[in-house]
Deep mutational scan, measured.
Amino acid sequence: SEEELEEFAKEVLRRGITIIVNGIRITEVEIFVKVLREILEKR
């Protein structure tokens, strides 16, 4: 749901943790923004 997305976004921003994806360091915020864009483009 959109509320869950908002909560996830807030949690990500609070933690600001960097994770490893395919050997490249990407912040969770960047991943969230990318996923959010993909979701919005599909609408």
Rank of each mutant, 00 (worst) to 15 (best):
E4W: 15
R43M: 15
V21H: 09
V21A: 04
R14T: 05
G16Q: 07
L5S: 02
F32K: 01
S1E: 07
R15H: 08
V33H: 00
E4P: 05
N22A: 09
A9M: 12
V12N: 01
E41I: 08
V35M: 11
L13I: 12
I24M: 07
E6R: 15
K34Q: 12
E30G: 11
E11C: 10
I19S: 00
G23F: 13
V12E: 01
R37V: 07
R15T: 11
K42A: 13
E2R: 11
R14H: 07
E41W: 06
E6D: 04
N22H: 06
E2H: 12
V33R: 06
L36I: 08
R25W: 08
N22I: 08
L5M: 07
E11H: 07
E38V: 08
I19C: 00
I24F: 09
L36D: 02
K34N: 08
E6M: 15
K10N: 06
E6S: 07
E2W: 15
G23N: 08
I26L: 06
I26H: 04
N22M: 06
R25N: 09
G23T: 05
L40Q: 03
E38G: 06
I31R: 06
E11P: 01
F8H: 03
V35D: 00
R43G: 09
K42Q: 14
S1V: 11
L13Y: 05
I39Q: 05
V29R: 02
V29F: 12
N22S: 03
K34R: 10
K42M: 12
L5P: 01
R43W: 15
K10V: 07
I19H: 00
A9G: 02
L5K: 02
F32Y: 05
E38F: 10
V33D: 01
R25S: 08
K10S: 04
I24G: 02
I31C: 07
V35C: 04
V29Q: 01
E28K: 10
I31M: 12
I24N: 04
K10R: 15
V12I: 13
K10Q: 09
L40D: 00
G23Q: 04
S1L: 14
I39V: 05
I31N: 07
F32H: 01
I24D: 04
V29A: 07
E41S: 11
E28Y: 06
E38M: 07
V29M: 05
L40S: 02
E30A: 15
R15K: 11
I31H: 14
T27H: 07
N22F: 05
T27L: 10
E38N: 06
F8P: 02
V12W: 10
T18Q: 14
E11S: 10
R14A: 11
R43E: 05
S1R: 10
F32I: 07
G16E: 06
R15F: 08
K10D: 03
G16I: 12
K34I: 06
V21I: 15
R37K: 15
E3I: 10
I19G: 00
E38L: 11
S1F: 14
F8E: 00
E38H: 10
I17N: 06
